[in-house]
Design a protein around this nucleic acid. Sequence first.
DNA 1: GCCCAATTTGGTCGTACGCCCAAAGTAGCA
DNA 2: TGCTACTTTGGGCGTACGACCAAATTGGGC
Lengths: 199, 199
Amino acid sequence: MARGAAQGTLDRGRATRDRLVAAALELVGEVGWSRVTTRLVAERAGARPGLVHYHFASVEDLLVTAATGVVRQMLGDVLGELTAHRDLDTGLAWLLGELGRYTGTDPASLLLTEAFLAASRIPRLHTDLGAAISGFRAGVADWLRGLGHTADADAAATVLAATIDGLVLHRALDPDLDPAALAGPLHRLLASGGGRTTT
Amino acid sequence: MARGAAQGTLDRGRATRDRLVAAALELVGEVGWSRVTTRLVAERAGARPGLVHYHFASVEDLLVTAATGVVRQMLGDVLGELTAHRDLDTGLAWLLGELGRYTGTDPASLLLTEAFLAASRIPRLHTDLGAAISGFRAGVADWLRGLGHTADADAAATVLAATIDGLVLHRALDPDLDPAALAGPLHRLLASGGGRTTT
DNA sequence: GCCCAATTTGGTCGTACGCCCAAAGTAGCA
DNA sequence: TGCTACTTTGGGCGTACGACCAAATTGGGC
């Protein structure tokens, strides 16, 4: 669809395509996944409606492409920064601070939830998103093991990943919910020592 | 809109209204909140499209009414059964077993997530759902305090509530995710003792 | 057995949608 | 400079939607 010829023209097409993707991402957060339309994307991207169907097979194709890319990058960035911390306290503090930046009602938070939901009805998105989440969990588990968590790093990482998304969800309904106030319970969750790890 | 007259006719109207609500709930899970249409609800309920706008001001009004009712009842039931357990171990085991019944792709799970998402764009739903969640958290915190959790019951309850919804979300993408395997970390999370509760 | 309010019917109106396509435009390459 | 592939334009087709309403129907109260 865009392969094997001149360079400059290809670059122009790529730039337009990227603008369409960016516009789609904004709109998913603003109006919701299923209310993103050909004409809406085109208007936001400063293009004609017909262009959308030149670059993408369908509106759904555009949305899946956009969502997969941005979620993968988001999870990758968080994992990279989190695992750069060499102890649980500072890592958790950073994570909770980062979580505070997502109010649950901003476009990025909504996009994440919309993508989860859409994945249950779109096989390709289901596969790609599942792989991204799985990778995130594995990375967190490795980080925990590196910090000396010997008992159930995989389970702890799974709970942490779910909790993060759950908090984004709940913060949308309760703006007063402060992630930083949850450090105590979460620290216990991620610590492997304590009185009950094997039984 | 349906007040102050004969009984039998009112009952008939109520029954029809209930059928519309039930149909709407099913469809939200099947096709998604924003793809539920007047005609779809009517067909599922075995009624004519015009009826929807006799009983409800709009399709959105119908969806908000339906979702608020069912989520409130769902949270109430879970809270009631959970707090009936008099120790952490059996309570947590029951909760994780119950969680196993929601695959994340069944209509009930999807409805919950759809409602969360829709609440960010519909003020009335935002208010009602926020109150329901807040009540759930408070109930869980009370339960924990009753079990001797003295340090940070509110924070622990908040994390637990978020984790539950997060797990429903993640299970939709990963059917192999077994809630029962997460008892260890979650038990640490909810226990108040341990080595780090005050600092 | 009649009356009237509650309920249901069946159809219409205007709008917006996704997808498609023929034609025009644009820019590297020979 | 002319060729060719890539990109963009602008409009059109068929479909489905939400909302609305006048007329018909139903059934309990008098």
